[in-house]
Design a binder for these strands. Structure first.
Length: 209
DNA sequence: CCCCAGGCGTCCA
DNA sequence: TGGACGCATGGG
């Protein structure tokens, strides 16, 4: 199967990526929100700010007013929006009991609740589900689409659900596989499939075609 | 100076 | 449905 083959080639080329970077599920989820259309380097600064003030805990973040939070996460960009949206998410988490791994609702139910939070779209919801909650959900991002479109595996304008279904219907439901696969796509995209450079003559996937 | 980054909501056709 | 635009910092 093509998707399995692609995975093997990427894993062979890059090895394990150890994703998601973050020490706790809460940190993972916060990173998922802060990294929206933002370089990860900038997110690291924002998270470092929170850590250095010992604020990376649900209760402490909930106490923090939005302006203070915004100032701390400023390096991650869109910081006023993100502060507000992050806060909304934290309130949801608190309402669910405050602990990701103790939430027992079906994945689809949680996903819909996450999507109803303003500022959490499909990619962010799925990143939280996969990397913070260990649910078998495939994460699709800009790199995934760009890589597949350039190799003509999907349409240029394929939507999120379409691409996600393609993976989930052709791969086993396997959390570890999905975690690694998405991380490998990001690695490949960053190094071989940049927006500005149309060619990718040295792309590891070349050997398939 | 430019373009880009691990998106999303809103508005409009 | 899907394209344009605003949101904002930091790096190349």
């Amino acid at each position: 199967m093509l998707l399995k083959k692609i995975y093997e080639i990427l894993y062979e080329a890059f090895g394990p990526q150890y994703w998601w970077p973050g020490e706790t599920p809460l940190e993972v989820a916060i990173g998922a929100i802060l990294t929206q259309n933002t370089a990860w380097k900038n997110v690291e600064k924002a998270i470092r700010n929170l850590k250095s003030k010992n604020l990376l805990y649900l209760d402490r973040l909930l106490e923090l007013d939005n302006d203070k939070l915004a100032e701390l996460i400023r390096p991650s960009g869109f910081y006023r929006q993100k502060a507000q949206r992050l806060k909304e998410f934290l309130i949801w988490l608190e309402k669910k009991g405050g602990c990701f791994l103790k939430i027992n609702d079906p994945t689809e139910v949680i996903r819909n609740e996450l999507l109803s939070i303003k500022g959490i779209g499909p990619e962010t919801a799925d990143s939280i589900l996969l990397y913070a909650m260990e649910r078998p959900v495939f994460v699709v991002d800009a790199y995934t689409k760009r890589v597949l479109a350039r190799h003509r595996i999907i349409r240029e304008n394929a939507n999120y659900h379409e691409v996600q279904s393609f993976f989930m219907h052709n791969l086993p439901y396997d959390v570890q596989l999905y975690k690694e696969y998405h991380a490998l796509f990001v690695k490949l995209g960053k190094e071989y499939c940049k927006k500005s450079s149309p060619l990718c003559s040295t792309c590891p996937l070349k050997q398939i075609f």
